[in-house]
Amino acid sequence: MKLRALIPLIIFLALVILLAFGLTNDPKKIPSPLINKAAPDFSLPTVLNPEQIVSRSDMLGKVTLFNVWASWCAACRDEHPLLVEFAKQNNTAIYGLNYKDQRGDAIRWLQAFGNPYVSSAYDVSGNVGIDWGVYGVPETFLVDKKGIIRYKQIGPVTRQIIRDEILPLIHKLENEQ
């Protein structure tokens, strides 16, 4: 009889757990299925020089960050100073993917806010973006020496994310042969 009285409480607790789970999970954040897979191939002209080509093979042999950005993206502007700071303080190369932007706007943006990128690929059609599974700018990938994606951040990186997640993982990946 006593057990019966507990049933509403048990149902209530189950509901609380279910709702807590739903509330703490952001449905907008889709875990990337590309993690631990080879970074998609690409070959595009750079933002600064249409004659110069940047491709996936340029990224091989070192741990790199691959940051998807655009001049029309407000959150990219919040993130940008952190990337500039990161590039100054660390040896890790940042490659950019300028996503569905206008070349003139992108160049002006880099001139105004600084250029933390080794080079930025100019993806005006967004096709390389689709290959990389980009659906919200900014996105940042961490790619290891063999060209395998090891981490993905959807939305702007923060100081905390750089300190607690990106930097420790970079150190770990650099020690891999």
Partner: peptide, 8 residues
């Protein structure tokens, strides 16, 4: 599509 954006 699934390889890039999951079953979602």
């Amino acid at each position: 599509m699934v390889e890039r954006f999951t079953d979602f």
